[in-house]
Computed example of a mutant assay.
Amino acid sequence: MQYSVHSPTQFIQTYADQLLPDWSQPILSILVVLQQCSSLMLSRTLATETQKRQGREQFLQFGHQVALELEFLGHLADLFDPATGWPLRSPPGRLHLDDVAVVRAALQYPTMAQGDCTLVIHPEWESAVYPSVLVSSAPLSLLETVAAQVSDRYLLDLHH
């Protein structure tokens, strides 16, 4: 798993009220999470669907822990379901979030249209990548600290 912390993309800044209408604080940071898959995501197969399901489950476990810790510290946080683009901890707004577009904007990674999906093209993993996004009202440095702490614990938990 790779992750990086960024300022909100232009889309998120412009449409925050339509993504998360109940939020009382501005979105100040985003966490982009990329997971390497064992095969390229170029077609819909049982293997790629299984990888997407596993990637989603791992992101939800990791993301919920990050969100809980940020909320404990007084900040809002929500993860967007990579399968639907809707928030998982807040009532949805009129718009859903396109995690591939967020990755393209935040990391400048190329993308590729493939059927009804758009794929992230990772510099090392090519299309064997599962992207996901968490947004927060926390400052960048706090989100970075919390994500690192949760990542350390999460990786330890995966190995036990």
Score class of each variant (00 low, 15 high):
13 Q>C: 12
89 R>A: 07
108 Q>R: 11
105 A>T: 07
5 V>C: 01
140 L>P: 00
53 R>A: 15
93 G>Y: 06
117 C>E: 15
144 E>H: 00
56 R>W: 11
130 Y>N: 01
55 G>K: 04
101 A>V: 12
4 S>A: 15
151 S>W: 03
115 G>R: 07
116 D>R: 07
68 L>T: 14
82 P>G: 09
146 V>A: 04
65 Q>M: 05
65 Q>G: 04
75 H>C: 09
32 V>M: 06
46 L>Y: 00
74 G>P: 13
65 Q>I: 03
79 L>D: 01
53 R>W: 12
59 F>H: 13
46 L>E: 03
12 I>L: 04
92 P>N: 03
80 F>G: 13
67 A>P: 08
92 P>L: 06
146 V>D: 04
39 S>H: 14
72 F>R: 13
146 V>P: 08
30 I>N: 01
147 A>C: 10
35 Q>S: 12
126 E>K: 13
53 R>D: 07
50 T>G: 14
12 I>C: 04
152 D>Y: 14
52 K>A: 15
109 Y>S: 14
60 L>M: 10
64 H>D: 14
56 R>D: 02
3 Y>M: 13
101 A>K: 12
101 A>L: 14
51 Q>R: 01
142 L>M: 07
47 A>D: 08
46 L>D: 01
38 S>I: 14
64 H>N: 15
108 Q>Y: 06
127 S>H: 13
149 Q>P: 05
86 W>M: 12
71 E>L: 06
87 P>I: 04
51 Q>I: 00
13 Q>I: 04
152 D>K: 13
111 T>A: 07
90 S>M: 03
91 P>I: 06
141 S>R: 02
114 Q>V: 14
12 I>S: 02
147 A>H: 05
117 C>A: 15
2 Q>L: 11
59 F>T: 09
21 P>G: 09
76 L>Q: 11
24 S>Y: 11
121 I>D: 01
133 V>D: 03
91 P>F: 01
96 H>G: 14
4 S>P: 09
43 S>V: 06
75 H>P: 02
55 G>A: 04
131 P>R: 06
51 Q>M: 08
37 C>W: 05
147 A>W: 07
134 L>D: 02
110 P>F: 08
91 P>H: 08
95 L>T: 01
15 Y>Q: 06
27 I>S: 04
144 E>S: 03
7 S>W: 06
78 D>E: 09
74 G>S: 15
57 E>S: 11
143 L>D: 10
126 E>R: 12
53 R>C: 12
139 P>N: 00
127 S>C: 14
29 S>N: 02
128 A>E: 04
59 F>L: 15
49 E>W: 00
109 Y>C: 14
95 L>Y: 12
57 E>P: 00
142 L>I: 08
58 Q>R: 10
60 L>S: 07
98 D>K: 08
118 T>A: 10
115 G>Q: 05
125 W>L: 11
141 S>P: 01
105 A>H: 01
